[in-house]
């Protein structure tokens, strides 16, 4: 395993107990230059995870609490008339930070949602005709409440597609919960965390992810997976080429974190539920009959060539 990331993961693991897989997936998502969507009920540690990541990676952190009356300008920033200089002066919004926690993103109106999502995609914002670049690296962790809760605007599929991964945290297991209940305040623990990786190292790691070798055999497997989603009657629509690239980059990031310079089928299998989970839906009438998710059905159905 990569030593710096190893250190980061173990530090994060001391605060968010029993969630090592999710922590690692979050790191993989960051290394693959993607954005992360965490979907879960309130209070399971979504915000804490975002905080921990920002602290460990030494990134500038901003939190935006999405509400139904939040406006795009509240996110992006506004120009205010400055009387002294007799000119409009731009006041950057909370989005001008390296790590954004967009809390309860599905509570805002679609208009505001799309302002955030466009910024995520293009790494820049355009306000009043002027384009401003966002800081690098730029990483958004959005959280969303389960859509059946009251007062939510579910993200449409096209918007979901902009998130590289969607993970859920879930309740901690009994032992972790006991440790959590016994331990000291998480907030003060986060403040004590020291950055393990600086900005340059992070950029280098992101670069290395792209150099992880993908063999023809692995591409065969990936294509078989994509092909299955497109032709199987299980799904109402197949995975897009963008989803294919997302799978590839995530598997590369995972392989790098494992300390390898090549990716293998297991890497794909580990990241696939998080990468493809929010992009796949069972066709009408097809349900997770065996109480498995669409992604798990996919992995079970396609043989490794």
């Amino acid at each position: 395993m990569h030593p710096a990331i190893d250190e980061a993961v173990s530090q994060a693991g001391q605060i968010i107990l029993g969630k090592e897989r999710q922590i690692r997936l979050a790191f993989a998502c960051l290394l693959a230059r993607g954005h992360l969507l965490i979907e879960d009920i309130p209070g399971v540690g979504k915000t804490t995870l975002a905080h921990v990541l920002a602290q460990i990676l030494g990134l500038g952190f901003q939190r935006i609490q999405f509400t139904s009356d939040l406006l795009p300008a509240d996110v992006l920033g506004v120009s205010v008339y400055d009387r002294e200089s007799a000119a409009f002066k731009f006041h950057p919004g909370p989005i001008f930070a390296q790590l954004i926690l967009a809390d309860e993103v599905n509570r805002a109106t679609p208009k505001t949602q799309s302002a955030l999502l466009e910024a995520m995609e293009e790494h820049q914002v355009t306000v009043e005709g002027e384009t401003r670049p966002l800081p690098e690296p730029f990483f958004v962790i959005a959280t969303q409440n389960p859509t059946h809760q009251i007062g939510t605007f579910p993200l449409p599929e096209s918007q979901l597609d902009r998130f590289l991964m969607r993970i859920d945290l879930g309740y901690p297991d009994a032992r972790s919960e006991r440790a959590l209940l016994q331990g000291s305040d998480r907030r003060s623990l986060i403040a004590q965390l020291k950055p393990c990786v600086d900005g340059r190292q992070l950029a280098a790691l992101q670069e290395n992810v792209r150099n992880v070798h993908i063999s023809a055999a692995l591409l065969d497997y990936l294509q078989a997976l994509l092909e299955f989603t497109r032709h199987s009657p299980l799904y109402d629509c197949g995975l897009s080429p963008r989803a294919g690239l997302a799978l590839l980059h995530s598997a590369q990031a995972w392989a790098l974190m494992e300390g390898r310079d090549y990716a293998m089928p297991e890497d794909l299998q580990v990241v696939l539920p998080s990468v493809a989970g929010h992009r796949l839906r069972f066709a009408h009438g097809e349900t997770g009959a065996e109480s498995s998710s669409p992604a798990q059905r996919l992995l079970g159905a396609v043989a490794i060539p």
């Binding site: 293998m264 297991e266 992995l299 490794i304």
Partner: peptide, 8 residues
């Protein structure tokens, strides 16, 4: 298993 990776 057909979908079992070599390491697994």
């Amino acid at each position: 298993q057909p979908n079992e990776g070599p390491a697994d």
